[in-house]
Design a protein around this nucleic acid. Structure first.
Length: 254
DNA sequence: TGGGTGACGCTCC
DNA sequence: GGGAGCGCCACCC
C-alpha cells in the first residue's frame, strides 16, 4: 500500500507525535513549529508536498530533499520535517488528489491576494478531462478582461495538480503555456482524455437539438453525437447563430 | 506612486 | 494562417 503512493517511510522529525490524519497532523505541526513534507508519485513524476497547520502550502517537483527544504524556508520562513508512518492516510489522500481524483484536501492560500484566491478556487473546480479558457476563469473570478492576470496567477501556482492549472487553455482552444513546459501540459491533458486536436480551432460546441452551446470539453458537449455537432470558434459566434450558453459550463455570461 | 511585467486576447495586415 | 502590435489587468518593486 505504501509503495502504491510512493510514500517514503521515514521516521518523523523531532517533536512530531502520533496522529492519523490532518487534524492530528495540525496539532503536531503547531507543537513542532515545523511544517511536514511528503514525497509522492504524481502524474508529473515524484513531487514534494508540504503541509502546514492550515493545509497544503506547496507542491514541487522532487529534486533533492535539501533543496526543497531550503527553498521552502526561504519562501515561507518555516522549517520542514519529513512526514512519518502516522501520516499514511493523508499521504494516500494527497496521492489521490494529485492524480486528479475528487478528494478533499485543504489548501493554505493565506499568502495570496483575494483575486488570486478567487482564481485558484475557480480553477480548482474544473473537472478532470475538461478545460476552460483563461478569459473564462477571469470572468468567473469576477474580473472579466483579466485573462492576462489569470495567466500570472497560474504561472505562480504554488500547488500544481491540486489546483489543476494545466486545464486552463487559450481562448482558441490551443493549450498555451505551462510552468513545467507546454509539452508537459499537453501530456497531462492527453492522459486526462482531453481531445486537444478537436478542441483547437473549435473550442465551443453546439447542437440544434437543444439550442445550447458548451465548452467543447464540457461533459454535456461530449455526449452530443458527431452528426449533431456544430463547432464554433467563439461564444459570440454561437450566440449570433441563435444558441444559448450551457448552464453547467457557462461559456458566456447570461 | 508609477512604470515594468506577463502561462492572454484581439485586430490588423 | 500567422505574426506583430497593442490593450488589458493585477501584481511587484
Amino acid at each position: 500500500m505504501t509503495e502504491a503512493v510512493g510514500f517514503e517511510l521515514r521516521e518523523a522529525g523531532r517533536g512530531i507525535s502520533p496522529g492519523r490524519d490532518l487534524d492530528s497532523l495540525v496539532e503536531r505541526v503547531l507543537e513542532a513549529g515545523a511544517d511536514v513534507f511528503f514525497r509522492i508519485d504524481s502524474p508529473l513524476g515524484p513531487v514534494f508536498v508540504a503541509v502546514g497547520s492550515r493545509g497544503v502550502t506547496r507542491v514541487d517537483r522532487a529534486g533533492s530533499e535539501e533543496e526543497f527544504c531550503r527553498r521552502y524556508r526561504e519562501r515561507f520562513g518555516r522549517l520542514l520535517a519529513p512526514a512519518g508512518k502516522r501520516d499514511l492516510d493523508l499521504a494516500e489522500r494527497l496521492a489521490a488528489a494529485l492524480a486528479g481524483r475528487r478528494v478533499e484536501v485543504p489548501l493554505d492560500l493565506e499568502r495570496m491576494t483575494p483575486f488570486q484566491r478567487r482564481v485558484m478556487s475557480v480553477v480548482r473546480g474544473i473537472p478532470r478531462g475538461e478545460v476552460r479558457p483563461y478569459g473564462w476563469v477571469a470572468r468567473e473570478a469576477g474580473s472579466p478582461g483579466a485573462s492576462r492576470a489569470v495567466g500570472n496567477v497560474m504561472a505562480r501556482n504554488p500547488v500544481p495538480l491540486l489546483v489543476p492549472c494545466h486545464r486552463v487553455v487559450r481562448n482558441d482552444g490551443t493549450p498555451g503555456n505551462y510552468g513545467f513546459s507546454p509539452r508537459e501540459k499537453v501530456r497531462l491533458l492527453r492522459e486526462e482524455g482531453v481531445p486537444l486536436e478537436e478542441l483547437s480551432g473549435s473550442p465551443y460546441t453546439a447542437t440544434p437539438n437543444t439550442g445550447v452551446f458548451c465548452h467543447t470539453t464540457c461533459r454535456h458537449a461530449r455526449r452530443i453525437r458527431p452528426e449533431n455537432r456544430l463547432a464554433f470558434r467563439s461564444p459570440a459566434d454561437a450566440l449570433r447563430a441563435g444558441f444559448r450558453p450551457c448552464r453547467v459550463c457557462r461559456p458566456a455570461a447570461v
